[in-house]
Amino acid sequence: MQVNWKGVFPAVTTKLKDDGSLDHEAIKSGLNRLIENGVGGVVMMGMVGENAQLTADEKRTVLKLAVETVAGRVPVISGLAETSTALAVQFAQDAEAIGVQGLMVFPGLTYRSDDRETVEFYRTIARSTKLGLMIYNNPRGYGVDMRPDLMDQLKDEANVVAIKEETYDTTRVTDLLKRFGDRFAVFCGVDDLVLESAALGVTGWVSGMANAMPKESVELLNLAVAGDFVKARELYRALIDLFHLDVHVKLVQYIKLAENMTAGYPENVKAPRLKLEGEERQKVVAIVEQAIANVRALSN
């Protein structure tokens, strides 16, 4: 499948049973729900998918389940988060053999690479596979910033095709589009900056809270890309408090709780994460309930 790098690509949660093992049926059901609500693709095992907490076998099992379930209806993109170049290359090749259509590549984990090392890391992975690569750029989370001058060093790698922009600075969107035009697809990677990013020309969004609100997320991006900012702002304001949860250190727990409330999927997480409890849980529940009520009010 040729990937059309546009639309809402949820960073899909990895559904787990109470004992921490993969919940195969919930994973499959969740994917079907997202597709039925109009997403443009799915990103398995991003940070929201708890990539770094999964074993090597679990990662490959998740990809096999995704490829089999999605069955070509939308592109399946796999997160790639490894601690060494050798492990990253092996995962890329395994993912390609399993049948995914693209990779969202984190910088090497645990070691903060310098500019030269970072570019070489991405270049080596690009040359190891035919899959299209989305660069995962989250300097707050991983300490490595793929600035436009570093992306320039990768422009001759034909399968480096997209960047998930998560610097929390919308001027970066304009800088990338001005410098590269349509050479790289620029995706918004921050839920509570999606309307601002779309106004600047972004047409793709890797979203966490789209797990909980897929239909509304698709509608929001479609409105913004079409230039209907009156309706887009109204919907954005209805969802913004929910979207703010996507940028918290506990975004995985928050998104899984929101998804549990809207779709009934288990909110289990891999330790050392723990399910929410007490006042913190009540606060998130209230935000989700209010977002649901806001969306209902708009439709009346």
Rank of each mutant, 00 (worst) to 15 (best):
Q2D: 10
L235S: 00
R73H: 13
N51R: 11
T203Y: 14
T83Y: 13
G108F: 03
A162K: 08
A293G: 11
G278W: 06
Q282V: 13
I163R: 04
K155I: 15
G79N: 02
E58K: 08
V89I: 14
D246K: 03
L103F: 01
Q53F: 15
D182W: 12
V70L: 12
L80C: 04
V285A: 07
V74I: 08
W205C: 07
S84G: 08
S113L: 11
V100Q: 05
D246S: 02
Y254I: 07
M104V: 04
L54T: 13
E216A: 10
M146E: 09
D169F: 09
V160W: 02
G143R: 05
E219T: 09
R33A: 09
P272D: 06
R179Y: 03
V39N: 09
I240K: 01
L193F: 05
N268F: 14
A97V: 07
A258C: 06
Y142H: 06
I98W: 00
G7V: 06
A81D: 07
P75C: 11
R296N: 12
I255H: 08
V48P: 08
D152N: 13
T118P: 00
L177F: 14
V12G: 05
E277R: 04
E277M: 10
N4Y: 10
A224S: 12
R233G: 02
D114W: 00
D191E: 02
H248C: 11
N222L: 02
G227E: 07
M104C: 11
T129V: 03
F243W: 07
R112V: 05
T203R: 07
T203N: 14
T55W: 07
T129L: 04
R140Q: 10
K59F: 06
P75H: 12
V230P: 00
T69I: 06
L274F: 13
Y254R: 13
V144W: 05
E196L: 08
G201K: 09
E157P: 01
Y265W: 11
A185L: 04
L221W: 13
G181L: 05
N300D: 14
H24Q: 15
I27F: 15
D182A: 10
E96H: 09
M134F: 05
M1W: 15
V144R: 10
K6Y: 05
E25L: 11
T14Q: 12
L16C: 11
V186C: 02
P266D: 06
T167D: 04
T14R: 10
N4Q: 15
Q290H: 07
R112W: 02
E25H: 11
N222R: 10
N294Q: 11
A92M: 09
V119F: 02
D57N: 13
Q53D: 14
Q90T: 03
V284E: 01
S113E: 09
C188W: 14
G40D: 07
Q253W: 08
F121V: 06
G132S: 00
D175N: 13
